[in-house]
């Protein structure tokens, strides 16, 4: 018989409350296994393993490496970093990396916006063809296409100098003069990266409701005013995210500089990745190479925080 008097119920409740403390180890394990959160954790485990194995471990290992001496026998804390700060060549690489990434991303975004608008205004029939063709630079393996560019920049046999010669233009040493070499690395990176911006912006443009443009037409907006007051504000989040993404990828770019100039002339085109490779692999100082490559981390982390904060704020507004 079940005791349903208040006293009986209270006693039963007290027994239930005490019950877990008296359970054996095996029983509490069974309870743990039955919990929903345990199941969820088990399902997420493969992903956690991948993230841990491919991101967390190499990341911390790089930090650890950057704190060792050249022979990797002694822990020297921030010795590699303080050493780098005293080197002019390091500051040149910082300067060149920032110039390379910021200029390239700016032009990629600009060209992306312009081409996306042009393609978006094409009649639907021809649009796919153009979209496909404009994506080609992004699809070709970068080191191969950079080789093509390298050939075109050749001072003696190249297409560019030949074309300039036809119109009586100057003979340019594309890859052996620091300013031109910097220009060339940025140009190739822009050529390669613009299609990504094009495709992202095209998708964003297509998501802007046509009625907004019609409303703006009736409100008296010119094409330029529609771009400034409707298109760009509607695309701000996509622009921010693509810029952030591209900034990260461009800062870490290796192929273009490696194939085109290998960092020359006189190390003037080195960016973090190529210089880290030079120091770490080619010169055998892996800890120093690791500290160079880690130097990008705070720059990107800070810009990511600002950009993502803006994205979140606008996401709440719109």
């Amino acid at each position: 018989m079940v005791d349903t008097t208040p006293r009986g119920l209270a006693a039963a409740a007290a027994t239930m409350n005490r019950a877990p403390t008296r359970r054996s180890g095996g029983a509490s394990l069974r309870v743990l296994a039955r919990r929903r959160s345990t199941t969820a954790f088990l399902f997420a485990l493969p992903l956690l393993a991948v993230v841990g194995g491919l991101i967390v471990y190499p990341g911390f290992y790089a930090i650890y490496l950057s704190m060792l001496n050249k022979a990797q026998t002694k822990f020297i804390w921030f010795g590699n970093y303080t050493f780098l700060f005293t080197r002019d060549s390091f500051w040149m690489v910082v300067q060149q990396s920032v110039l390379f990434a910021v200029t390239a991303v700016f032009f990629k975004a600009l060209i992306g916006v312009i081409t996306a608008h042009l393609v978006n205004n094409l009649p639907a029939k021809g649009q796919r063809k153009w979209r496909g063709m404009l994506l080609v630079p992004w699809v070709i393996p970068l080191s191969l296409s950079t080789l093509g560019w390298w050939w075109m920049f050749d001072p003696t046999y190249s297409a560019f100098n030949w074309a300039f010669a036809q119109i009586g233009g100057p003979h340019i040493h594309w890859l052996s003069e620091p300013a031109w070499a910097r220009f060339c690395t940025i140009l190739v990176n822009v050529w390669y990266g613009s299609p990504f911006f094009l495709i992202m912006y095209l998708a964003a443009l297509k998501s802007v409701p046509g009625e907004l443009y019609e409303a703006a037409s009736i409100d008296g907006a010119s094409a330029w005013q529609k771009l400034i007051h409707v298109t760009l504000p509607m695309m701000r989040n996509i622009i921010s995210i693509t810029v952030l993404f591209s900034l990260i990828v461009t800062f870490a770019n290796y192929d273009v500089v490696r194939v085109l100039t290998a960092g020359g002339p006189r190390d003037t085109t080195h960016v973090f990745a190529t210089w880290a490779f030079l120091l770490g692999i080619q010169s055998g100082d892996i800890p120093l190479g690791a500290s160079v490559s880690l130097f990008m981390l705070p720059i990107l982390a800070i810009s990511a925080v600002f950009i993502l904060r803006g994205v979140r704020r606008r996401g709440r507004e719109i």
């Binding site: 409303a215 703006a216 009736i218 007051h229 509607m234």
Partner: peptide, 18 residues
């Protein structure tokens, strides 16, 4: 449209979300 001196209310309102 801008020179016709008209105003239009759309089915989906077409308000500028930003």
């Amino acid at each position: 449209p801008k020179d016709r001196d008209i105003a239009m209310v759309f089915q989906n309102y077409a308000l500028y979300p930003h």
